[in-house]
Measured scan of single mutants.
Amino acid sequence: IRKQWHEDITQDLRNHLVHKLVQAIFPTPDPAALKDRRMENLVAYARKVEGDMYESANNRAEYYHLLAEKIYKIQKELEEKRRT
């Protein structure tokens, strides 16, 4: 379902936000690492998460909020795993 606010969101912005999700899960300073085949699954997962939020959000603010919440949860989980 195409929503009115979707018209304001460019593909570049969506790609940028997918990249932010990927960085939250696997922070790497090396952009070449993103071309690694093992990263493809991670990028696919991040695209799916972003797509789900894009579809479920009712406006741009909610879209950003859902993504920020997801990134926060991912970082929290990773922190907890590092501690144990």
Rank of each mutant, 00 (worst) to 15 (best):
R37T: 11
D52P: 02
E77N: 10
H16F: 10
V18F: 06
N59Q: 02
V43N: 01
K20Q: 11
D8S: 07
P29R: 11
M53H: 05
D52A: 05
G51A: 14
L34E: 14
Y45A: 03
L21N: 00
Q11H: 00
L34D: 06
L78Y: 15
V43K: 06
M53N: 06
Y64R: 09
D36F: 10
T10F: 02
Q23V: 02
R82W: 05
I74Y: 15
I1F: 02
K70E: 08
N41C: 08
F26I: 13
L42E: 06
K73W: 09
T84V: 11
R60V: 10
H19Y: 12
L42G: 04
K70I: 01
D12V: 05
I1M: 13
Q11W: 06
S56M: 05
A57V: 15
L21V: 03
K81N: 10
K76E: 13
N15F: 00
E62S: 01
E40C: 04
V22C: 03
L34T: 14
Q75I: 13
E80Y: 10
I9A: 01
R47C: 01
A32Y: 09
K3Y: 00
Q75K: 14
A68H: 15
R38D: 15
M53C: 13
A61M: 10
E62Y: 03
A46Y: 04
G51T: 13
K70S: 05
D36N: 08
M39C: 07
P31M: 10
R47E: 07
S56T: 12
F26G: 13
H19E: 13
A33K: 13
H19F: 08
T28A: 07
R83A: 12
R14D: 00
E55I: 07
K48Q: 05
Q23W: 06
E50R: 04
K35C: 09
T28C: 15
N59V: 01
R82F: 08
L34F: 12
E55H: 07
Y63N: 00
V22G: 02
T28N: 14
A33W: 05
E79I: 10
R47D: 07
E77W: 05
A24D: 01
Y45P: 00
K73N: 10
L17V: 14
R82T: 10
E62M: 02
Y64T: 10
I1G: 12
L67G: 05
H65W: 04
N15G: 05
V49N: 00
K48H: 01
A24V: 06
E55C: 06
Y45W: 15
W5Q: 04
D30T: 08
H65S: 12
D36G: 12
L78F: 10
L21S: 02
D52V: 04
P27W: 05
P31T: 09
Q4Y: 14
L42I: 14
D12R: 02
V43D: 03
E69N: 08
N58H: 06
Y54K: 06
M39S: 03
E50A: 01
F26R: 14
R14F: 00
A68F: 07
N41W: 05
T84P: 14
K73H: 12
D30G: 10
E69D: 12
Y54I: 02
D12M: 00
I25V: 08
K20P: 00
T10R: 02
Q11T: 05
Q23M: 08
L66E: 06
K3A: 01
L67Q: 04
R2Y: 03
P29D: 14
Q11E: 11
A68E: 15
Y72E: 15
E69V: 06
W5V: 05
D36R: 05
Q75F: 00
P27E: 14
D12T: 05
P29A: 15
L13T: 13
I9K: 00
W5M: 02
L21R: 01
L78T: 13
D30K: 05
D36I: 06
R82V: 07
Q11C: 04
L17Q: 15
F26M: 15
P31H: 06
I74R: 03
V22D: 01
I1V: 05
E69A: 06
A32R: 09
A32W: 08
W5D: 07
F26E: 15
K70C: 05
I74S: 09
L13G: 13
T28E: 10
H16L: 10
P31S: 12
K20R: 09
I71A: 14
Y64F: 09
E62R: 02
E77H: 07
L34Q: 13
G51I: 11
A44N: 13
P31R: 09
R47H: 02
K35E: 12
R60A: 15
E40Y: 04
R14S: 02
H6C: 00
A24L: 03
Y45R: 13
Y72I: 15
K48A: 06
N59W: 00
I25Q: 13
I71D: 00
R2D: 14
K73A: 12
T10P: 11
E40S: 09
V22Q: 10
I1Q: 07
R14T: 03
I74M: 07
V49F: 04
V43A: 04
Q23N: 13
Q23I: 00
P27C: 09
E62I: 03
R38T: 07
A32I: 12
V18E: 00
V22M: 06
V18W: 08
Y63Q: 01
P27Y: 05
V43Y: 13
D8N: 06
K20F: 01
D12I: 04
E69S: 06
L13F: 01
L42H: 05
E7C: 06
N41G: 10
K20L: 04
A46M: 03
M39F: 12
T84C: 12
Q75T: 11
A24I: 00
R47F: 02
K48W: 01
P27F: 03
I1C: 11
E7A: 12
I1P: 14
H16M: 08
K3D: 03
V49I: 13
A57Y: 14
N59Y: 00
D52E: 13
D52S: 15
H65P: 00
L34K: 12
Q11F: 01
A24T: 05
I1A: 09
T10N: 05
D30M: 08
